[in-house]
Amino acid sequence: MPIDRDTVSDLRPLEFRTPEEVLDGDKLYTIYEIARLLQGLDADMEMDRPTENILLDWAIPWVLFHADAFVFAEPEADDEPGYYGLAEP
């Protein structure tokens, strides 16, 4: 449900960073790690599943939008996530 703009005290512009600004070119990351990095968190930070799911809602479209900047490595096992890295480190 929409809220009145007047009820919010801290409005900021959206700031979208490029993959090169977020990721280290010499590393590969899971989508979960990318989601954390996009929020300025440590890639290996522990978090609860509901919060992690919210971060994924931002990270997945961001990765898709910048798909040409990424390479993909298959997961080590069928029940693990794949890894993403910069196409040009």
Score class of each variant (00 low, 15 high):
Met1Trp: 10
Met1Tyr: 14
Met1Ile: 14
Pro2Cys: 05
Ile3His: 07
Ile3Met: 05
Ile3Thr: 08
Ile3Arg: 14
Asp4Ile: 06
Arg5Gly: 04
Arg5Ala: 06
Asp6Val: 12
Asp6Pro: 06
Asp6Tyr: 10
Ser9Asn: 07
Ser9Pro: 03
Ser9Gly: 05
Ser9His: 10
Asp10Val: 11
Pro13Ile: 11
Leu14Ala: 12
Leu14Ile: 14
Glu15His: 07
Glu15Asn: 06
Phe16Leu: 11
Thr18Glu: 08
Pro19Gly: 03
Glu21Thr: 06
Glu21Ser: 12
Val22Ala: 04
Leu23Ala: 03
Leu23Glu: 00
Asp24Arg: 15
Gly25Ile: 08
Gly25Gln: 12
Gly25Trp: 10
Asp26Gly: 09
Asp26Glu: 13
Lys27Ser: 06
Leu28Gly: 03
Leu28Tyr: 06
Tyr29Thr: 00
Thr30Val: 14
Thr30Phe: 03
Ile31Cys: 08
Ile31Leu: 13
Ile31Thr: 14
Glu33Asp: 06
Glu33Met: 11
Glu33Cys: 07
Glu33Phe: 00
Ile34Val: 15
Ala35Met: 02
Ala35Thr: 03
Ala35Glu: 01
Leu37Tyr: 03
Leu37Met: 15
Leu37Val: 02
Leu37Asp: 00
Leu37His: 00
Leu38Ile: 15
Leu38Tyr: 05
Gly40Pro: 03
Leu41Arg: 15
Leu41Tyr: 15
Asp42Trp: 09
Asp42Glu: 12
Ala43Phe: 04
Ala43Thr: 06
Met45Cys: 06
Met45Ile: 11
Glu46Ser: 09
Glu46Thr: 08
Glu46Trp: 11
Glu46Lys: 11
Glu46Cys: 05
Met47Val: 07
Met47His: 03
Asp48Met: 02
Arg49Cys: 02
Arg49Phe: 04
Pro50His: 01
Pro50Ile: 00
Thr51Asn: 05
Glu52Met: 11
Glu52Asp: 08
Glu52Gln: 09
Asn53Cys: 07
Ile54Leu: 08
Leu56Gln: 08
Asp57Asn: 12
Trp58Tyr: 12
Trp58Glu: 05
Ala59Cys: 13
Ala59Val: 01
Ala59Lys: 01
Ile60Pro: 01
Pro61Ala: 06
Trp62Asp: 03
Trp62Pro: 01
Val63Gln: 02
Val63His: 01
Leu64Tyr: 12
His66Arg: 02
Asp68Trp: 04
Asp68Thr: 13
Asp68Val: 07
Asp68Phe: 04
Ala69Gly: 04
Ala69Asn: 05
Phe70Cys: 02
Phe70Arg: 01
Phe70Trp: 03
Phe72Pro: 02
Glu74Cys: 06
Pro75Met: 12
Glu76Gly: 06
Glu76Gln: 14
Ala77Lys: 12
Asp78Gln: 13
Asp78Asn: 13
Asp79Ala: 14
Glu80Trp: 11
Glu80Asn: 11
Pro81Ser: 10
Pro81Lys: 12
Tyr83His: 14
Leu86Ala: 00
Glu88Gly: 07
Glu88Ile: 10
Pro89Gln: 12
Pro89Lys: 14
